[in-house]
Simulated scan of single mutants.
Amino acid sequence: MNKIAYSAFIAFLASIGTLVSVQALSSDEADSAGDERDITLDELAEHASAESCWKAIHGGVYDITDYVPDHPTEEEVILEWCGRESSEAWDNKSPGRPHSPAAERQLENYRIGRLVDDQGEPLESADTGELPSEEQDQPMEQEAAAAAPSPAEDQRLHRAMLGQPLDGHYRGVFTDRGEIQVNITFDLRDGHLSDVNFRHLAYRGVDYLTLEEDADLYPVMVQHRRITEWLEGEPLTSIFALYEPERVVDEVDGFSGATLRGAKVISAMRDGLNRGVYSWP
């Protein structure tokens, strides 16, 4: 009889311990959820470097600073989205292909808050408006599949199979010794260039895009701007003329064509082509 009473007593203690543990876990989860704070786009923008990289993805904000060195692609690819609403990049690891469920689970380890507007209202994206819920619930994949052209009609497929660059928006970089020197964007339409712009242009610690007109090296920035103007409307093959940049840009205020470093611009543009279309027209 004593053995039965003792066993019942032990079982009772075990059940009490289980209830306490469950309650503690629930409390921890609640505390963790309560720790999540509201983060505005302005605060997000303050964390746009390798030293502090925050990204907003579908309403959540993530501090991925510690993960940046472990990202499988070049560091500049992920740094490009630091301090920004990055759902577009997350949903298009390659055109039309999002990150995997495993990546989504890993991402949650870095969550620090939710994205809100200046009034504290949640933001799903950087856009000011959201689709009504009934439109969000539509089977978009089926609609896209129905609207897609057949292989016999898809001009993008034909160009790819023939080894021709696809029409679209491209981004590329040239990096030397860990420093991004050239980051350039451009569009291709029927093999011709348009909307050619520098997103970053630097050399030996000098950011040319931020120079004032009275700065000694400002003419170098002007020369590079003239490169983008010269490329507008030109066929893609015209980039190889930049190997002799003095043929493209006249001397500016005593600075010779040698300051143009046209080969770096070519390398950045070819990097963009190698990465593939960044976004479709």
Rank of each mutant, 00 (worst) to 15 (best):
M140Q: 12
P165Q: 00
N109M: 11
A160D: 06
E76G: 03
R156E: 13
I64Q: 06
T128S: 10
E46P: 08
G172F: 00
Y110C: 03
P101M: 00
K93N: 10
P165E: 00
D167K: 01
A145H: 14
V173L: 02
A56T: 07
G83H: 06
G113C: 09
G178V: 00
E135D: 12
L44F: 13
H58N: 13
P139N: 11
L115I: 09
E80S: 11
E80A: 11
L115F: 09
E74H: 13
Y170K: 01
E121D: 11
Q164V: 02
D63S: 13
V116K: 06
A126N: 14
R97M: 14
E51R: 06
G59S: 09
A50Y: 05
T175H: 02
L166T: 08
A144M: 14
D66K: 15
D167R: 00
A148H: 08
E143P: 06
H169D: 03
E74R: 13
C53Q: 13
G96Q: 09
A126Y: 13
N92M: 09
A102P: 02
E76M: 07
G113S: 11
Y62I: 04
D127A: 09
P149L: 08
G163P: 00
L115E: 06
I78G: 01
V61A: 10
Q136P: 03
A45L: 12
P101G: 00
A103Y: 07
E134T: 07
E85D: 15
D117Y: 10
L115T: 06
N109V: 08
E51P: 04
D137S: 15
S86H: 08
W54V: 15
P132K: 03
L79W: 02
S133W: 15
D117M: 10
A145T: 15
R84P: 05
R84K: 14
W90L: 08
P101N: 01
G59P: 04
M140P: 05
L115N: 07
G59K: 06
D154R: 02
Q136M: 14
R177W: 02
A102E: 14
